[in-house]
Amino acid sequence: MRPLGFAGDVAVRARGLAKRYDGIVALDGVDFDVRTGQCFGFLGPNGAGKTTTMKMIYGLAAVQDGTLEVLGRDISRERRAVKARLGVVPQEDNLDRELTVRENLLVQAGYFGIGSEEAERRVAELLEFSLLAGRSDAMVRQLSGGMRRRLLIARALVNEPELVVLDEPTTGLDPQARQTLWHTLDRLRDQGVTLLLTTHYMEEAARLCDRLVILDLGRIVAEGSPDELIARYGQPHLEAVFLHLTGHELDR
């Protein structure tokens, strides 16, 4: 699974990452390393800078200050090459509503320049993997929320990415759909794919993440494995750590 041309064991390296939008500080000097093969979580209240960080990694937000290396390359200079090896599951559903489930995957393969025979093979595989084989000719609007999320994940895997970025992948899903999604992510990690995710659910972070950072007001306020953080701050569970570190939110 380890790709050619990528020797390092750090999938994402950020140093002094900073960004302002119209004078508002979105990110204020952030450093982190995501190791290859890990599931790495970004936690933080709304507006903490999670989505901005994700978008920088997948090329939909420009790096303003600092450096960001993704899969061993500088994202600001080699965006096209980096994006070829990434999978992206955005926060908002941006599936192609004018196409069927199967066509969404086929057209996505097309965007990556994957030949049609290979694309057909991968699409058939992904439809099975995401439990959507029975709905392959349905239009996107006919799918349930959980199915759409699974299709978004399947779409992100068409190019066999080394790193998958997931921005709040389970927000708005019912418990069953969330469980199914967690299993999907487990399987990906077992295959050696690096996962990067943001979430508001502490039990999800504790369940999935090897390491995580807690962001607040554009800065990292804590970093470690879920157990380390619980031990370090003497709290009963991750949610208590989170509230302890970002508690000022309650005063707003």
Partner: peptide, 14 residues
């Protein structure tokens, strides 16, 4: 509305 351009720009298409 559908943010289709966002999804395309997250692939190697610039």
């Amino acid at each position: 509305e559908t943010r289709l351009y966002d999804s395309i720009l997250a692939t190697p298409i610039e």
